[in-house]
Computed example of a mutant assay.
Amino acid sequence: MKQVAGLKVLVVEDEGLVALMIEGMLEDLGFEVVASVSRLADARTIAAKADVDLAVLDVNLAGEPSFSIAEVLRGRQIPFIFSTGYGLSGLPDEFAHQPLIGKPFSKEELQQTIAAALSS
């Protein structure tokens, strides 16, 4: 994986404990978490303006899909991964080839999925 020390990450996750777990894993891997948000509208705003190098997006935010955030990030050419408990079947065709990690996941699985996102 390319050098990650200091790369800035946006975490979008609606479960507080899961968000803390992801943030801890990212920090252990050398990333800087610049924002962690749980609401769709807030996440879209931050994704549109924040200085980030990567994002980790929960597919389902309190019953709302995060695909509009993914579209904003894709428009800004910012790599992202989806995090979900639903598997690939929960992704629309336009995101079918996007790196995806299934919950629960390990730090090593997160690292591998991020490496795939950063290399594409």
Results as ranks from 00 to 15, higher is better:
residue 104 P to Q: 07
residue 39 R to N: 14
residue 53 D to P: 15
residue 18 V to W: 12
residue 23 E to G: 12
residue 44 R to W: 07
residue 49 K to P: 06
residue 90 G to C: 06
residue 49 K to T: 15
residue 112 Q to G: 14
residue 91 L to E: 13
residue 82 F to I: 09
residue 16 G to N: 05
residue 25 M to Y: 05
residue 25 M to Q: 09
residue 58 D to T: 14
residue 29 L to E: 15
residue 113 T to W: 05
residue 92 P to S: 11
residue 56 V to W: 06
residue 51 D to V: 05
residue 1 M to S: 15
residue 14 D to P: 06
residue 5 A to T: 12
residue 15 E to I: 04
residue 106 S to A: 10
residue 119 S to T: 06
residue 102 G to F: 11
residue 21 M to G: 07
residue 23 E to T: 05
residue 98 Q to Y: 00
residue 78 I to R: 01
residue 34 V to A: 09
residue 113 T to S: 15
residue 112 Q to T: 11
residue 71 E to I: 00
residue 64 E to A: 12
residue 2 K to Q: 12
residue 20 L to I: 04
residue 33 V to T: 13
residue 94 E to W: 11
residue 102 G to L: 13
residue 62 A to K: 15
residue 10 L to E: 01
residue 8 K to W: 01
residue 114 I to E: 05
residue 111 Q to H: 08
residue 29 L to S: 03
residue 73 L to F: 01
residue 119 S to Y: 12
residue 9 V to N: 13
residue 81 I to N: 03
residue 27 E to L: 10
residue 64 E to Q: 13
residue 70 A to K: 05
residue 97 H to W: 05
residue 21 M to W: 06
residue 82 F to Y: 07
residue 72 V to E: 10
residue 16 G to P: 02
residue 62 A to W: 15
residue 49 K to L: 14
residue 69 I to M: 00
residue 19 A to I: 00
residue 120 S to N: 14
residue 104 P to H: 07
residue 5 A to E: 11
residue 19 A to F: 14
residue 22 I to Q: 10
residue 102 G to H: 08
residue 86 Y to F: 15
residue 53 D to G: 09
residue 51 D to W: 10
residue 75 G to I: 09
residue 104 P to D: 14
residue 37 V to D: 04
residue 33 V to R: 04
residue 110 L to T: 08
residue 92 P to N: 03
residue 54 L to R: 09
residue 76 R to I: 12
residue 101 I to R: 03
residue 120 S to D: 14
residue 8 K to V: 03
residue 6 G to E: 10
residue 35 A to Q: 01
residue 82 F to M: 10
residue 62 A to D: 14
residue 45 T to G: 05
residue 8 K to T: 02
residue 62 A to L: 14
residue 71 E to D: 05
residue 98 Q to V: 02
residue 53 D to H: 06
residue 118 L to W: 15
residue 10 L to V: 05
residue 73 L to G: 04
residue 46 I to Y: 00
residue 94 E to A: 01
residue 58 D to A: 10
residue 60 N to T: 12
residue 65 P to K: 11
residue 115 A to I: 04
residue 49 K to H: 14
residue 113 T to Y: 13
residue 51 D to C: 08
residue 100 L to V: 03
residue 49 K to E: 11
residue 45 T to C: 09
residue 66 S to Y: 04
residue 79 P to F: 08
residue 86 Y to V: 02
residue 72 V to P: 04
residue 2 K to V: 12
residue 56 V to K: 05
residue 43 A to G: 01
residue 67 F to V: 03
residue 4 V to C: 08
residue 14 D to Y: 07
residue 21 M to Q: 14
residue 3 Q to C: 09
residue 67 F to K: 02
residue 51 D to L: 02
residue 106 S to M: 08
residue 9 V to D: 15
residue 29 L to T: 07
residue 4 V to M: 14
residue 16 G to I: 02
residue 24 G to W: 04
residue 14 D to K: 00
residue 44 R to M: 12
residue 3 Q to R: 09
residue 88 L to V: 08
residue 23 E to Q: 08
residue 44 R to G: 07
residue 89 S to H: 15
residue 107 K to F: 02
residue 68 S to W: 09
residue 73 L to R: 00
residue 29 L to N: 09
residue 5 A to D: 15
residue 93 D to F: 11
residue 94 E to K: 06
residue 50 A to T: 04
residue 27 E to G: 10
residue 40 L to W: 00
residue 40 L to Q: 06
residue 37 V to L: 11
residue 76 R to S: 02
residue 42 D to W: 03
residue 102 G to A: 12
residue 103 K to L: 04
residue 17 L to N: 09
residue 101 I to F: 02
residue 35 A to T: 01
residue 114 I to C: 12
residue 47 A to M: 06
residue 66 S to R: 01
residue 9 V to F: 13
residue 6 G to A: 03
